[in-house]
Amino acid sequence: MTTVTSTSSRAVSPQLLLVLVLIVLAMIAPFGIYPIFLMKGLCFGLFAAAFNLLLGYVGLLSFGHAMFFGFSAYVTAHAAKEWGLTPELAILAGIATAAVLGAVTGWLAIRRSGIYFAMVTLAFSQMMYFVAVQAPFTHGEDGIQGVPRGHLFGLINLNDTMTMYYFVLAMFVASLLVIHRIVTSPFGQVLKAIRDNEPRAISLGYQVDRYKLLAFILSASLAGLAGSLKALVFQLASLTDVHWHASGEVVLMTLLGGVGTVFGPTVGAFLVVAIQNYLSEVGSWVTIIQGSIFVVCVLLFRSGMIGVMTPWLKRRGITG
């Protein structure tokens, strides 16, 4: 069966085909599925993909990514509501905030590795949580409510749910392409070398710390984009997004989907968001189930859903 396609040298590769099919599916999805749910999934999928850039390709487990996600959401919400900026500028302001925050915390955190790196990032994230609790512009427990979505470039009205959905989808696809480009670039190869054998990367003359810091800032910026989009979709920026629970959730999404895979984090994000949606009425069960998924993933499926499925897909020639 597969010989038919592989004989013509100009044939579209199965991977590209899969991506195109997924994009088409994503474009028709809002006609059958609640668009707000899909947008939430896409925002968290992007957040998880950004986190995975660090964990999957540099081997750094950040337990504080909520600070980039949440603070970017705050800045975007503030810029759109109080300064009246157009959405694209508000998003840029959010990303810039996340990048600066990533540069400062990353610069400090990469001084330690492994388990300490996770603890340091968690601690900084908690510090930013307390800052968010106290700073006047975040409005404490209320958060920034009623954020206007506005008109993209002053032209496209994002208050229409479908338009907003396609905008979020476009940003999501573009970001995943950027991540794919980063990972497959020579820069990405060095990152993987650092992940696999840091002393060897050092001995080959690479300035390991610079690579780690740049990867950290890129990851923080993309997480910031996800937070900004989420602030516009839900027209809300709140303490939930900077809480350590959000940092834990993004770890869970990535672990569940598959660390170091391109689509894994998105799959994990949609699963976790679906669990939250369907179980939101039954109180603390969401937390208990999330904890159980962590335990089961760590004990049984360390390669995640995509990791478990990859051999099966490979046999069918879908992923290379």
Binding site: L61, F63, G114, I115, A118, G248, V251, L255, G283, S284, W285, V286, T287, I288, Q290, G291, S292, I293, F294, V295, C297, V298, L299, R302
Partner: peptide, 28 residues
């Protein structure tokens, strides 16, 4: 005891999950 031969990060993740379960159960 199943994790001692693996990367330390898995221990952190497992105990994080346990923390969520314990906390969620008492909250419930």
């Amino acid at each position: 005891s199943r994790l001692y031969k693996l990367d330390h990060l898995y221990g952190l993740l497992l105990t994080f999950g346990l923390a969520l379960i314990i906390e969620g159960a008492f909250r419930q």
